[in-house]
Design a protein around this nucleic acid. Structure first.
Lengths: 174, 174
DNA sequence: GTAGCTGCAAATACTTTGCATAGAT
DNA sequence: ATCTATGCAAAGTATTTGCAGCTAC
């Protein structure tokens, strides 16, 4: 008899969560998809794998489309959009709207975090601050809101490369 | 000789700022627009007035279009978009992207604040928290980012009306 | 075998742009 | 008089949808 982590039909879900909490690499299996009512098709497996194998990766639908095409896989853009939406609803991915008007997705590893985005090179770093989270909850309570989600994005220029430098040059012109 | 607040050509700008800091009602005059290099046209004056005379008002381009039309003023939607963009660049308005895919604008009264948005009725409340602001700056410094902007939105269900109640009903279904 | 997926093209939603006319300074 | 703004329609960008054929279970 094999041991399984978790309980009954939902074991896939719990083991996935556990892996995530333990910071082990996460690999979504065909069964994981089936348990969420999604058929394990090639496009879906490759899309989720792309997110899982990229570190700190925030991608638009176009990004996913392009990267899969580079790997010789020609998946229609409509399918990418559909699958990303389904994965977000299934909790596998998180969607964000940074300053641009395109949605970006990242893998959901179960650790909530916020983002700081470089407006010049597009670099995204993640952070978590318990104090900010606490204050947010207090404010929601004061205002009598039942908060279900929040978005905190810091926008600026990173020290890497010439981003901060270029920014100064630009503001000198104006 | 008349006293003026501020210095030389920029007096309009400084007096406007002062009014705002003193929480006095803000009225953008034709001269205010001229000083920003914008001609004082009827569409522009009516649009800025609409924002100035509405309390806690967050409006999309469509909202502005509709409300001016209700007042018997038929301004093209393209003009609304153009003027809102110009006003944002001139610092008269602030632009936000809440969870929907439409941009919303509000008057810039010079007091920074964040937003808590009801996902059911669309109500928007404003808040300011010095502790959150402080932590944001510390994080940016740690990460070596020069932050120029940030967005903090809390999404939830407000206690007014049946928003929280309906939310519970919905999650019971799912 | 059947329910659910994919690709394509067409449709949609929001926003921007080209151009001729109208208006502000 | 000149330079800029407006309205309309057309274009653009991101995303969604209808439908016929294909695939996982």
């Amino acid at each position: 008899m094999r041991y399984s982590i978790g309980i009954g039909r939902k074991s896939g879900y719990y083991s996935r969560t556990l892996r995530s909490i333990q910071h082990l690499p996460m690999t979504t299996t065909p069964q994981d998809l089936n348990e969420r009512g999604l058929k394990a098709t090639l496009p879906r497996l490759r899309i989720i794998r792309l997110f899982e194998t990229s570190r700190d990766c925030h991608m638009t639908a176009e990004d996913v489309y392009r990267r899969l095409k580079e790997d010789g896989l020609d998946i229609g853009l409509a399918t990418i959009y559909r699958v990303l939406t389904q994965f977000e609803q299934a909790g596998l991915l998180l969607r964000h709207h940074f300053e641009s008007d395109k949605a970006v997705y990242e893998i959901n590893r179960g650790h909530h975090h916020d983002h700081i985005v470089c407006l010049h090179c597009g670099k995204v770093e993640e952070f978590f601050d318990a104090e900010i989270e606490k204050r947010q909850n207090e404010i929601a309570q004061e205002k009598n809101f039942e908060v279900v989600d929040h978005a905190l994005y810091l926008y600026g220029y990173c020290a890497t490369g010439d981003c901060a430098e270029r920014r100064r040059a630009e503001s000198d012109e104006g």
